[in-house]
Amino acid sequence: MSTGADHALRWGGGQLWLCPERAAFWPDERVLLVADFHLGKAHSFRRLGVPVPGGTTEANLARLGALVDRWQASEVVFLGDFLHSTQARGGPGVPAFAAWREARPTLRLTLVRGNHDQRAGDPPPELGIGVVDEPHARGPWALCHHPQPRPGQAVLAGHLHPGALVGGTGFDRLCLPAFHGRGEVLVLPAFGEFTGTKAVVREPGDQCFVTDGVQVFRVP
């Protein structure tokens, strides 16, 4: 259920709840939409000798599990980039996700392949994730990884890791994860903890909703 911090949005003829945890929920079908999970990204960086913080996989899985429980979701659809790289397949993230998955045997999981998935390969079979190519038609939307307009159809996508600058000027500004809508395309923020954001250059008519992790609010 909504906590009051979620933001209701009518998009392309369908109802969504934009969640502070950087996901969206489709109540009609009880589907949770998650973009850019990037499982194993921190491990991949460590393999290259880059020191990065630990615990990101555990944080991602805890947040995902809390969302599934809160909304009583029947399915999670990953909008691309589930695995970060081929190196991630041999890291600790896969068994951690397998344990998370084992605790939720009736939850349906679907991945819409993204650019990282093309390189890393489909998720290991033990994770129980169905895989489809984009565009994946579901309800009123085309579910994609790449945010490309489709004639006569609204799109939900990821890939860009959108953020929006809020605050004052100079060092008094923050770039917060954002849901960014332009035309008929809504781009979700990256779900993964260790993914980063890129401030979008907004144009007239765009819709932008940022999350501080506690609440979603619209940016004028």
Rank of each mutant, 00 (worst) to 15 (best):
R108A: 14
A99M: 01
W71M: 11
P204F: 08
H43A: 15
D28S: 13
E29P: 00
H145M: 13
S85M: 03
D212R: 08
K198G: 14
T86G: 09
V94Y: 00
T3R: 13
K198T: 14
E126A: 12
E126Y: 04
M1V: 12
V187R: 00
H7F: 15
L32W: 05
A98Y: 01
E134G: 09
A73T: 12
N115A: 12
W71T: 10
H180I: 03
G128I: 06
D28T: 14
Q207T: 14
R46A: 01
L61M: 04
G192V: 03
A62E: 14
G13A: 13
D117S: 11
R104V: 06
H180S: 00
V34R: 00
A142I: 07
V219T: 13
S74I: 09
A42T: 13
V94G: 00
G170N: 12
G196Y: 12
L48Y: 03
P20R: 08
A88C: 04
G168V: 07
L174V: 14
D69S: 14
L32S: 06
P27C: 10
R47M: 12
K41A: 05
H161T: 03
L174Q: 15
H180P: 00
F217S: 14
A66C: 09
R138G: 00
R47I: 02
P51H: 11
Q87L: 14
E126M: 05
A5N: 14
R63G: 01
A154H: 03
T211N: 01
L186M: 07
R182Q: 08
A199H: 05
V94M: 02
G181A: 13
A190Q: 01
R108H: 10
F37A: 05
T169P: 02
A98I: 02
G168R: 13
V131D: 05
L16R: 05
P189F: 01
L111H: 09
A66T: 10
L61Y: 02
A199P: 04
D122L: 07
T197W: 08
L32I: 13
S2F: 08
